[in-house]
């Protein structure tokens, strides 16, 4: 009975999730093996998977998602730095905390639309750069296929860093301050206190945020890309990501079977990452 107890605790949630997502998941797997027209179609085995895996656009989309992973170290570093600075309780820190969290409170489409206006070729950002005689920096931020994905990345970092900052700050504020005080008395400077005392105690929350970031970059950047990429992952296919690929296949190309096949692959990869997290954490706990 003791061994069963934890499972009984989580059973209601598992049942609820099964009720909400179960049928959809089963149908998704089923659709991925069919040529769907309307709501059903003939069984075609692995054909959808073969078609997708042989399509350059699919791999280009995967590549863009992987490229977005490059933002994670920046995101974590920026969040950590901001949280550590706020933790010093500099003058007006509560106001700064509110300001820094603001991007996260606003809906992604709102900030993306505003950013899109800001970063137009003749928009405010480039106008200011030109006014400062920095014409060489006035790039076609959202219109050039070479730059657009980096612009998307910048927007993601700006917004998601707000969540990281708040998470890290919450952890910092829950720490025993006597250790920090002792270090301060012993003459440790800000960097030494952060590196040797604070950050080691934040390992769990940093790990958690890292996983959130990976999942975000792989499967939750649709709104950013949809708005900044003109609804199509553009210019060209330069900001096409897996989510948008799935959306296009489903709603714009009448290919639910293809959309399902890619969804299954994304699901399996995400599941693998979550499993990996559990394995790592268990090893650390042991």
């Amino acid at each position: 009975m003791t061994r069963l107890k934890p499972y009984l605790y989580v059973a209601p949630l598992v049942l609820l999730l099964g009720f909400v997502f179960g049928t959809s998941l089963v149908r998704m797997f089923e659709f991925s093996f069919k040529m769907i027209r309307g709501v059903d179609g003939p069984w075609i085995g692995w054909r959808n998977y073969r078609l997708v895996l042989n399509q350059p656009l699919f791999w280009e989309s995967v590549g863009h998602n992987l490229q977005l992973l490059l933002a994670i170290p920046i995101l974590i570093g920026l969040s950590l730095l901001t949280a550590l600075l706020l933790y010093e309780r500099l003058r007006g820190w509560t106001l700064w905390r509110a300001v820094l969290f603001l991007p996260y409170v606003l809906a992604i489409p709102i900030i993306a639309v505003v950013m899109k206006q800001m970063f137009q070729f003749n928009g405010p950002v480039n106008e200011v750069l030109r006014w400062l005689s920095l014409d060489f920096m006035a790039l076609d931020w959202i219109g050039s296929p070479d730059i657009a994905l980096w612009t998307v990345m910048g927007l993601i970092v700006w917004r998601e860093a707000a969540l990281g900052t708040i998470l890290f700050l919450a952890r910092l504020l829950s720490l025993d301050e006597s250790l920090v005080e002792a270090a301060r008395i012993e003459g440790a400077n800000w960097w030494q206190r952060a590196w040797h005392i604070l950050i080691p105690q934040m390992r769990g929350v940093i790990e958690f945020f890292s996983v959130i970031c990976v999942i975000t970059m792989l499967s939750a950047v649709f709104a950013y890309v949809y708005i900044l990429g003109g609804g199509r992952g553009g210019p060209g296919t330069s900001t096409m990501v897996i989510e948008l690929y799935i959306y296009n296949a489903l709603t714009r190309q009448s290919l639910p079977g293809i959309a399902a096949a890619v969804s299954v692959m994304l699901f399996v990869v995400s599941l693998g990452l979550i499993y990996l997290l559990f394995v790592v954490r268990r090893r650390q706990d042991d």
Partner: peptide, 22 residues
């Protein structure tokens, strides 16, 4: 145009040729 061609050829080509990258 089939939707797939529209999304993956007609639009990306025009955008990239107009931008100068194709």
């Amino acid at each position: 145009m089939p939707g797939q061609f529209y999304e993956q050829a007609a639009i990306p080509t025009g955008q990239q040729v107009a931008q100068g990258s194709m």
